[in-house]
Nucleic acid binder design. Sequence first.
DNA 1: TCTATTTCCTGTCGGC
DNA 2: TGCCGACAGGAAATAG
Length: 275
Amino acid sequence: MFMPELPEVENVKNGLKDLVLNRKIEAVTVLWDNIIKDPADGTFQSTISGQRIESIERRGKFLLFILDTHVLISHLRMEGKFRVEEASKPLTKHTHVIFRLDTGEELRYLDVRKFGRMSLVEKDNLLSHPSLSTLGPEPVAEALSVQWLSQFLNTRKRSVKSCLLDQKMVAGIGNIYADEILFASKIHPERAGESLSPAEIKALHGSIIDIMQKAVRAGGTTIRTYSNAHGKGGNYQQNLTVYGKTGKLCVNCQTPISKIKVAQRGTHYCPTCQI
DNA sequence: TCTATTTCCTGTCGGC
DNA sequence: TGCCGACAGGAAATAG
């Protein structure tokens, strides 16, 4: 399983920079149409062909390939991966998009479950693209304020877990880190957003920034098999306290970790520590 | 405007 | 051993 959240996408971005920066894309082949979200007029391949990869950025969980005139927006969703391989190497089963490079190599997009999506947008329209225009702040101290979190949560009747997964509140948090953040904040995942006290919101704010920063430094979380374009995974799984720990004892109080469903997601928490 | 539900996909796992 | 249903889940579309 891969499950790229912000820290994993950051790792993927850095690996890709080493391999394809300044390379020209000579041709594009799409083997599974549903991966391409837009443009819907079939100009995806022809527009990219001939453009150089000027830089690679990240916004939330979105990878951004900055080309000459356009930006390729890529979301890996559950299991999307990029690989750079010699064009002569046979395609593996789950290869869906192929970018032929001027080096004789190919940048290949693999995705077992075909959940990933790509969009192509003109540079000037990048920030107004629907995928990016509503994204909340990045989970770093310079961008995310306690005031913003309060303003968002105070008007939400739905669960705080659902709010953490909402990319409009904070960009880049997924199911693994949402559970870890709530455990660190000692907040029960089913608590309504509007029920959180100022002290709890402050704790949540600190945990969001702290955990996401540590996970980025660790290169993300490797569950079973996950790796960047170099085949290199992350190490944050050693720091997980509740995610995937159902029945194991809480590191604080030795209560068995519970698993429930919140906002349609598997949710792990300590029933003693998180209130 | 806000929220809950459905859809997209296929490999893996537990139960029988 | 083999089959079959449940499960995993991010974002967008849809419905209320």
